[in-house]
Amino acid sequence: MAEAHHNEVDAASGVSTTGHEWDGIRELNNPLPRWWLWTFYACIAWAVAYWVVYPAWPMVSSYTSGVLGWRSRDAVQVQLAGLRAQRAVFAEKLEAASLDQIEQNPELLAFARAQGRAAFGDNCAPCHGAGAGGAKGYPNLNDDDWLWGGSLEQIHATITHGARSTDDAGHQGNMPAFGTDGILQRPDILAAADYVRSLSGLPPAPDAQIAKGKEVFEANCAACHGPEGKGNQELGAPNLTDGIWLYGSSRADIVADITHGRGGIMPAWGGRLDEGTIKALTVYVHTLGGGK
């Protein structure tokens, strides 16, 4: 039945029909518009040319590379090179300038802070937090308490060489494990903890033995933390008289510190980041607010 309609001409439009019919509705056999057809042919030609010119077909272990030899990896390299060239002007200035000079020059300072912020997010934020707010065991870099010193030079050295890191020039110094290594007995540790808490005016426990603790402190701890507990930045020994506690200020926390020892690790970034980036990081950390 459908065949019968084939090439039948529709009366109203004067166009032949395709022979397809649905419930009496017949499909007109209008030709495609010419512009559409040519666009279609042009697309096919384009696609063929594309196969020839650009990488296209996957092979067993490689692909057809195209006569232009274009590779996406090279394109990225070119863009990266462009980016580096764009940054070079300031990056070179950063490398050449001293840390003080950077802080004096508003333009350079703004650039260093921006670059430092980005580099901080990439490299430092996993431990110190995105805003450098720190966490238990990871120092808050916004405050004014510095384990290894808060001057520009000291921060720069800490970032470059790290602390207790693989770099021999890095900071060394450990809090011994007085309890697990059998240096002190439990009652002495408790007494020392109570004494340490008293240094910063924290309220004493009811059974606190401050006097005994002082004896223990002077015999074991003062060597590093100083006779008054003010700490020693050469050794990374924290100041025990201020309000800032890296591992917590409760009696249990401090007892744990003395018993098991402490020694957080800051990696050395010297070999991994270029000097300009380290300077930028230094300036950024320094201007977070606590720099000395």
Partner: peptide, 17 residues
């Protein structure tokens, strides 16, 4: 500043940035 909201300084004062 949202991270951290505030910072405790060594002398016990509070600082916001």
């Amino acid at each position: 500043d949202r991270n951290p909201f505030f910072v405790l300084l060594s002398d016990g004062s509070i600082r916001n940035a």
